[in-house]
Amino acid sequence: MSRLSSTIDGWRSFDSFAAEGLISGLDPRTIILSALCTVIAMTGAGKGEVMVLLPLAAFPLTLLVLADIPPMWLVKRILPVLPFALMIGLLNPWLEQGTVTLPGGAEISTGWFTLASITLRALISAATALLLIASVGLLNISRGLAGLRVPALFITQLQMLFRYFFVIGEEFQRMERAWRLRSGSRRGRMPLKLAAQLLQNLFLRSLARAGRIHNAMLARGFSGEVPAGAPLHWRLRDTVWLAGWAGFALLCHSNLPMLLGTLLTGQPQ
């Protein structure tokens, strides 16, 4: 399957989780803000930090559990992120000169911790982003953003993008499929010249479609103001949820796990 087809299908599947589960009972703003708290706490961790990061994985995993998302769905989408993190972090074990003593007395470079840390960061941030939209849904994300005072035009733009990605994407998919059927190559790249022609063609169709949508808007009395969607309601559970995750992020940041661990193993050094 081409990347385009898988994207269209993937996009549809993103939307299918959002309708059910506890998450849909929360204000989308709550989830967006708690995701941001998690990501900021994550990025604020020290360079070679692993322990502060690990517990932060609880946020995306909680979304996964509460929204009933199959773990394999996440694994499949998150894997493409790994090579990038590895590429960036792989040199660190050799670039860094500090060492850590292991149980057997062997010393390894702190760079391994940096590598682990970068990989963990990549995984947590990717999982947070993917699960944010999967558990809340495309539509409610844009509602939440509107509730966070993001300009109305940008929200309209986002919603139009969601809406017409399917239409334009499927049009493109048909053209691409026709090319693949005749080119004999199931995967792979397209010659630049052909890609340009395809894009020109699609572009012209898109322009024509924009014209027709414009007409449809005019026909229904459009005068420049796109009506806003239903208003959002912030409830007590939203405050609890947000305060909980913000506090958790802060605790992780101030090294709660280490404290817990030392308490447990009785290693007060």
């Binding site: 081409s2 990347r3 385009l4 994207t7 309209t156 733009q157 919603q159 139009m160 993008l161 809406r163 017409y164 990605f165 239409v167 334009i168 994407g169 493109f172 691409e176 792979g188 790249r189 397209m190 010659p191 630049l192 052909l194 890609a195 340009a196 395809l198 894009l199 699609l202 572009f203 898109s206 322009l207 479609r209 924009a210 014209g211 949508i213 414009h214 808007m217 796109v226």
Partner: peptide, 21 residues
Amino acid sequence: IPLMGVLGAFVFAAQMINFTI
């Protein structure tokens, strides 16, 4: 408004096409 929306979708879809440089 429709032009921006549709062209956004167009660019999004166009990004999925890998071509040889």
